[in-house]
Structure formats: structure tokens, C-alpha cells
């Protein structure tokens, strides 16, 4: 595991760019291709890449399992919360027009937070699934020994 120095250095170089690309896909989704689903997968892929090169315990130290598990629910709650907020402001469920001073800025605000909820849930679910799979592999190896 100590001989893969090229992989480790390359991972260190590439992961920041992957994360920035994820943010670009998220926040530029209004203008170009992309959005919460794609950005969530890219962010999760960056952490999975880190876990593949540096090992699962290292990745779990950076992004703890409990945080990932909580974020899974935070994403859907954020999305549903946008709907509740639009009800409280006098509109229908998920009616973004009431969220801002004028309809277009309300739409912008609604789409922003909804996509944010999608990003959080998708990224954390992908990461959690990976953690569970990879963690099981470690356990299986340990019981074989």
C-alpha cells in the first residue's frame, strides 16, 4: 500500500478539481448541463476516489458515517422544507413564485434550494452505499483471517 505514490499524489491533485467541478455542475446547472443529481454523484465520486486510494478508514475520518447518514435525511427535508415555506408564504406546495420579491427571483430561490436538497441527498446516499459495501468487504476479510 505504501508503493502507490503516483496514485496518491495524483489523487491529491485531482480531488480538489473534482469537487470544484461538482460545484460548477451544481451552480451552473441553470445555464448549462447539470444539476443536483449530477453534481451529487460527482461529489460522492470524489470522496469514493479518496477512499479507494487512501483507504476506507481515512475517508471515514474525513467524512464520518454519522454525518453522511444525517445528510441523507437533511437533503429531502430541505427539499420538502421549500414546499412548506411556499405554503407558509401563501402559495401552494412547491410554488416558488411566492418565495421572492418578484416571481422570477422567487423561482431562482426555489430552484436553488431544491437543487441543493437533491445534491445533499444524492451525494450522501451514494457515499453511504459505498461505505456499507466497502465496510462489509473489510469485515469479510477480517473474519477470514
Amino acid at each position: 500500500m505504501r508503493l502507490d505514490i503516483i496514485l496518491r499524489v495524483l489523487a491529491k491533485l485531482l480531488i480538489p478539481f473534482a469537487l470544484v467541478f461538482g460545484l460548477y455542475v451544481q451552480f451552473h446547472g441553470d445555464y448549462g448541463p447539470g444539476g443536483g443529481f449530477q453534481a451529487g454523484v460527482i461529489v460522492a465520486a470524489a470522496v469514493i476516489f479518496y477512499a479507494l486510494i487512501y483507504g476506507l478508514p481515512a475517508a471515514r475520518r474525513v467524512v464520518p458515517t454519522e454525518v453522511v447518514q444525517t445528510l441523507m435525511a437533511v437533503g429531502v427535508l430541505l427539499y420538502s422544507g421549500v414546499g412548506i415555506a411556499s405554503i407558509l408564504l401563501g402559495g401552494n406546495y412547491l410554488d416558488y413564485f411566492v418565495l421572492g420579491a418578484d416571481p422570477v427571483s422567487g423561482q431562482h430561490r426555489g430552484i436553488f434550494w431544491v437543487e441543493m436538497g437533491v445534491l445533499i441527498t444524492v451525494a450522501s446516499v451514494m457515499l453511504k452505499i459505498f461505505y456499507v459495501f466497502a465496510g462489509r468487504r473489510r469485515d469479510a476479510e477480517e473474519t477470514e483471517e
Binding site: 446547472g29 441553470d30 445555464y31 448549462g32 448541463p33 431562482h108
Partner: peptide, 8 residues
């Protein structure tokens, strides 16, 4: 919606 990407 003020969003140029129709997909979004």
C-alpha cells in the same frame, strides 16, 4: 423561471 436551461 429566468432559467435558460429548460431541462433545469
Amino acid at each position: 423561471t429566468g432559467v435558460p436551461n429548460v431541462v433545469t
